[in-house]
Design a protein around this nucleic acid. Structure first.
Lengths: 213, 213, 213, 213
DNA sequence: CATGAATGAGAGTTCATTCAT
DNA sequence: AATGAATGAACTCTCATTCAT
């Protein structure tokens, strides 16, 4: 008679919702995502979403909080392995790049949120971005003090790193498409893997910071 | 009884709709924008939107086409003023930066579209981005041939420029907010004007391209 | 500069609208027909329809009046050629059949209207059907008096004739479709022409009226 | 405050919708029926219609399927009671007539659909009409083989029966109206009950099939 | 914890109709 | 006579959310 499987595992169910919400929100954006579609992705009843989360916005906040925390802790943990600004900077970029590549919903969600200064969750986004930026800024500032980085404007450099990496991740399918059509001499980096990209980016950022002019 | 407003200027009405649609789409995204809200922003009857445009998507396409063409022609016109890659690159960045700053809906719309590889209008976005990228890529390629640029990967550099500028524009209000709270020693470039930013960016990009390693 | 041809022939324009309205109403019914589609069928401005006709219902009435009058006069003119009930009956059926076949919108419109007792134009339909029925009824009554028809109930026989012919006309495409699929031994009269059908119908009606039981 | 009515009987709610949809579609046709009106007829929220049915067309199909199945099974069940073509034919006509009279939406819906060869649901109507026709055709064919029917063209006779009965049912109110105005000597069968009509029809059809000419 | 039924508001879109030119 | 712009009401359908079970 059991025509349905009742999981009755609240932790698992909640996580299931969050996981699918990440997928959905990153694909369709906040407004474009429907709770109906979400629940059917989870093979769960629609009302369950509202049982675990206050409302759509609450779910979105939970989703964003989760992924923003995840990237933050990933980066900060990796950062502990290094003891000089040069390595720390390299580590920051490499780690962010790898994370963005293996969790491609992060760039999608981040760019969407940043594209309107966090219209949906200003405070949360605000706090998270600040924490990550603080770390990045600290690295550069210390590097400047130690004389290995010159002419540093952390905010701009921060968006340079994040902008480049996030856009390269989100446009991957677009660039692959382009590669099929484009002339021989235009390279869209369609086949570049994330390591090549971050190596190049690191090299260039280092060149940037080596001298004043 | 005078409730109806007869403007009867089709060109003006259509432009009114497009202008407000730009605002609305850039603020709320495609899915989040409502045609109801749009029409009341225009002080026009809702049906008028569908009189001038096939449907919501058609309007969105018209909007995107307009702004993508505008930025493209602005950049390409400016480009004609220069005769060497170094100046051309500088011109490209300065022009894009200025345009993005004076037309802040462009970064908002672009980031939103790019964040999901152009979910709404793939072909249109695709074509436009390619045209702009072609120009950028050409500049760098010629510079490389002439020996003034080294170790060039146009695609990455393209997203570096666009990513940095677009994010700096869209996060402006966020960064101003941050400036009020932040400690003294963290600069969010809240007060930087676009010229300072682009000068810095140009300087850094040039350093990047000066040597191989 | 003349990018449009201004007909400025009111009679022709009005007739153009009526002609296309006949097509449209017979295909889509009253509610399903849109004035927008109609006007573009006519290559005329939408407002012209309302210039010539009070409103949608007024147009529909004009359409129905035209075709109901046409069939009525066609039948009554033909009827004058005969001088005995038997020939008159045969003439009635043959004429109606031929008209329905060459003007297939008549059955379509008639069945639609009759299917809800003339919801849209009760009085008009009412009057027209009565006039045609009167003629039919007279023929039968006179035949009965003269002894050539027996056991006559005009109303039922009237709907028998009209029902059969109208349905055979409107279902023509359906029956052709069926012929392609059906087993050999089922004949949907897909290829029958209207003459064969009316000859058969006349023969059968005559048999009906020859004796009491 | 008690504004909401919680019936919470899905079977009843769904049937309520279907029942009212039958009424509405048969009165106003597919295009003329509004889902708003339907839901308020049901004292149900508008969204419930779309909860139970995919869309308007899906509801219409469900409605048509229900009534076409009902008439088919009614006729076929009755048919099993007889063992000779003559009785079967009589049974067919009587049963159809009675059903059409007690379920007057059937003729209304059928004539509307047939009047444009099933514009809304071609396949469904097609299949149903074929099944019913097959039964009718079989009866006549067997009668012909056994020598009790002569000169049989099933398709025409089928539409004769259905046309007559359907039109007599749908025009009932029209004919009652006419009876009030008409001269003494014209009988619109306004008061005829369905039994008298089907008895007359059966008698006439039998006469038709008794001899070749 | 989980479900399906129910809801009201609003979405995008089309409609018949009218107005100014 | 003819046009295109404009309107308000209605349309089908979807949304986030809540209720009873």
């Amino acid at each position: 008679m059991a025509k349905k499987i009742y999981k009755r595992d609240p932790v698992a169910s909640k996580q299931l919702i969050v996981d699918n919400a990440i997928k959905l929100f990153s694909k369709k954006g906040y407004a474009g995502a429907s709770m109906d579609e979400l629940s059917s992705m989870c093979h769960l009843n629609k009302a369950m979403v509202f049982y675990y989360f206050k409302n759509k916005k609450g779910l979105y906040e939970a989703v964003m909080e989760e992924i923003l925390q995840e990237i933050y802790y990933t980066v900060i943990e990796e950062n502990k392995l290094h003891d000089n600004p040069m390595d720390e900077l390299e580590g920051f970029i490499k780690t962010y790049a790898l994370f963005a590549c293996t969790h491609p919903y992060l760039p999608a969600l981040l760019l969407k949120e940043l594209s309107d200064s966090g219209a949906v969750i200003p405070e949360l986004l605000f706090a998270s971005m600040r924490k990550l930026f603080s770390l990045f800024s600290d690295i550069l500032k210390r590097g400047e003090e130690q004389g290995c980085f010159k002419d540093v404007v952390p905010m701009i450099l921060y968006f340079m790193v994040l902008g480049t990496l996030n856009l390269l991740v989100t446009t991957k399918s677009l660039r692959i498409e382009a590669a099929k059509l484009d002339d021989i001499d235009v390279d869209t980096c369609a086949t570049c893997d994330i390591d090549e990209i971050s190596v190049y980016l690191i090299k260039k950022i280092k060149l940037m910071l080596k001298e004043d002019r």
